[in-house]
Design a protein around this nucleic acid. Structure first.
Length: 653
RNA sequence: GCCCGAGUAGCUCAGUCGGCAGAGCGAUUCAUUCGUAAUGAAUAGGUCCGGGGUUCGAUUCCCCGCUCGGGCUCCA
């Protein structure tokens, strides 16, 4: 007999040698059917592992995150099995589960590549393997034997050599392939397929099936651009057909919200080929929304004690030498223009210019904190493959501010900066935040440990007083200071990194900044970089996707469209539009040579917040028919009532 | 930058096994004057991404480039 403890605290007795599958079966048929793996005293094990007396055992089902993880990992194995079977001479590297699915990296003989037709063929073969319900069988062997088993697979051999000689714990990118102490584990299934793997896996391939191969992509071996480019196949896998379908639906929804598509449909922004990659032009409606965003931002900054500055787009090389950009950022900078014996670089960042403003005169502790703010256009040479609509462009506008403060002021300044950032983000309709605190890197960092600790604690205190969820990324800070990054979650659950608060001990040092302290001594100020939108263009793109093009009334380029029922009502429509405009609203009139239904549809497709229909009864009574974007149609609404209602919505939150 | 895929009317996309270029939507004009998501007809609209090659003939086949998309790397 073995006795195991269950998560609910109860105990259960089973015959000697019983495995987790038997335990699941003894609890219930449904659990036995849904079981994927088990944990024994917290360690994940295959269902066929014999139970240890006294262990706490939990059955993991496909419905849980852990279970899905295994399901995807096992599906990745089947993918590798299919590819190795179909393509003689193919070799395989790693194939971990990832968010929503899995991938596997391959190399085909002679540098051959996969096509979409290959994916269909591979998927069909995978379905055969799944139909055959092959058991996954675990085996532990020592590294020498493993090197023979994988004699034809150099990437596997490389993994085996690393895990048998080095500290596998430190090698996060082994991605669960193997790990240990001179011994490695393998999983075999079917006729002769074996993969190096820590496991655990589902009991047999028959447990899989709700998957789809999605795309083929290039991926560097071990993520290193100096190493060979492998062929990566991505797939998605789920516990049920319904879950798979729901996931595919979410992907379609994200595609529907694509800001590049909406930008075109709503006539906001375009990317003429003539300009070059990553460079956009703003059409009147897009420019209007942007203008509203920027106006709101300026107003808030003015209220927040910032002072506005402007700086040029170019500066000579010596500025970038002093700032250090030519040492550590040159790859992302546009090349210089040579003039009059000097080299002028387009700016990739605004900070050195703001430093120049700080340094333009003597600064006393009485002047601090000094908060400089600029909507500064910067140019960065992004790799051609990285450019993506407004979300990643080569020319963009940072809502950049640099705060110069005394060491003592840093903590309180950070707290108020974070409050400010969150308050503005909320006004734009985001209220789900996740922050990351990045601390001192172990290898290279400027400034004393005391300075770092003080600033890091200031950041942590700011996060805590803002009651913000955060994770710590130990050693994740830049060499010049610790930072907070703020992610927002959008309407369909995607996270976007927007704002950043970055403490900088480096630039004040490089530019020899100082202020005069109360005792007359010169002291070094601390600089804080703070971007809120990050990039105005990118923030606009994120907003567009968040709202799926339906901007809230205060940001909508057209807030109402007035539709006369027939030509007779055109004069009254113009009167209504005029009254709303006089109240400060943005209104257009859609004249009546098309049928009403058609004009309503057209206005709805433009996602205009208020479609206003006026006919004979409205002319007589001074009313309008109101068809709001997200509510029922109302008739006979007095114009004054509508105006008041729209004005209330038209103010930023 | 690297891997895979794509580029045909303003948009979405057919098509040509190498022989005068197509649809729907949109635009324009005319008719229609209508109470809440597509009125009808007509017309206009093309360097089939660019350059080179093969060919009697290239939008189609080949080569080189450009741009876009999905990834990798990077990142606001």
């Amino acid at each position: 007999m073995v006795r195991v403890l269950l998560p609910d605290g109860s105990a259960r007795d089973l015959p000697d040698g019983a495995d987790a599958a038997a335990l699941a079966a003894s609890i219930g048929r449904r659990l036995a059917r849904d079981a994927v793996i088990a944990t024994s005293d917290g360690a994940e094990v295959d269902l066929c592992t014999p139970l240890a007396d006294g262990a706490t055992v939990e059955i993991v089902t496909a419905g849980s995150e852990r279970g899905l993880h295994t399901l995807r990992h096992s599906t990745a194995h089947v993918l590798a099995q299919a590819v190795l079977g179909l393509y003689p001479g193919a070799t395989f590297a790693i194939g971990p589960p990832v968010a929503d699915g899995f991938y596997y990296d391959f190399e085909l003989p002679g540098g051959a590549t996969f096509s979409d037709e290959d994916l269909e063929r591979i998927e069909a073969r995978m379905r055969e393997i799944i139909a055959a319900d092959q058991p996954f069988v675990r085996r532990e062997i020592d590294a020498t034997e493993a090197l023979e088993v994988f004699a034809d697979h150099p990437y596997k051999r490389e993994i085996i050599e690393r895990v048998s000689t080095a500290d596998a714990e430190a090698d996060a990118d082994l991605a669960g392939e193997a790990g240990g102490d001179g011994r490695v584990s393998c999983y075999a299934n079917g006729e002769g397929f074996v993969d190096l793997c820590l496991g655990p896996h589902v009991p047999s391939t028959g447990r899989l099936g709700h998957f789809a191969l999605q795309r083929v992509a290039g991926a560097y071996w071990r993520g290193d651009s100096d190493r060979p480019m492998l062929q990566r196949i991505y797939g998605t896998a789920w516990a049920s057909a319904a879950d798979l379908k729901a996931h595919l639906h979410r992907l379609a929804e994200a595609a529907r919200r694509d800001h590049r598509r909406l930008a075109r449909e709503l006539d906001l922004v375009s990317w003429p080929e003539e300009l070059g990659p990553g460079l956009a032009v703003w059409h009147p409606k897009g420019a209007l929304v942007r203008h509203l965003m920027e106006d709101y931002s300026r107003r808030r900054h003015a209220e927040g004690g910032y002072e506005f500055v402007y700086t040029p787009h170019l500066a000579k090389s010596n500025l970038w030498e002093t700032s250090g950009h030519l040492d550590f950022y040159a790859e992302s900078m546009y090349p210089p223009m040579e003039l009059d014996g000097a080299a002028y670089y387009p700016k990739p960042m605004n900070c050195p210019f703001h430093v120049m403003i700080y340094r333009s005169g003597q600064r006393s502790y009485r002047d601090l904190p000094l908060r400089l703010f600029e909507l500064g256009a910067v140019y960065r040479y992004e790799l051609s493959g990285a450019v993506h609509g407004l979300l990643r462009s080569r020319g963009f506008t940072q809502d950049d501010s640099h705060i110069f403060a005394t060491g003592e002021q840093v903590a309180s300044e950070l707290a108020s900066l974070l409050d400010f950032v969150l308050s503005v983000l909320r006004a734009f309709g985001f209220d789900d935040f996740q922050a990351k605190l990045s601390t001192r890197p172990a290898r290279k960092a400027v400034g004393s440990v005391e300075m770092w600790d003080h600033a890091t604690e200031g950041l942590r205190a700011a996060l805590e007083s803002a009651d913000l969820d955060y994770v710590t990324d130990p050693g994740g800070g830049a060499f010049y200071g610790p930072k907070i990054d703020v992610d927002v979650t959008d309407a369909i659950g995607r996270a976007w990194q927007l704002s950043t608060l970055q403490v900088d001990f480096n630039l004040p040092e490089r530019f020899d900044l100082y202020y005069t302290a109360p005792d007359g001594q010169r002291r070094r100020p601390v600089m804080i970089h703070r971007a809120l939108f990050g990039s105005v263009e990118r923030f606009f793109g994120v907003l567009l996707e968040h709202y799926a093009g339906a901007f809230p009334t205060w940001l909508a380029p057209v807030q109402a469209s007035v539709l006369p029922v027939a030509a007779d009502h055109a004069a009254y429509a113009a009167e209504v539009a005029g009254a709303l405009r006089a109240a400060g609203l943005r209104v257009e009139v859609m004249a009546s040579d098309e049928p009403l239904g058609r004009r309503v549809r057209s206005a709805k497709l433009q996602k205009i917040p208020y479609v206003l229909v006026v006919g004979a009864s409205d002319v007589a009574a001074g009313t309008v028919g109101v068809n709001p974007r997200a509510a029922e149609t109302e008739r006979d609404v007095p114009l004054a009532t509508l105006t008041a209602r729209m004005l209330a919505e038209a103010a930023p939150r």
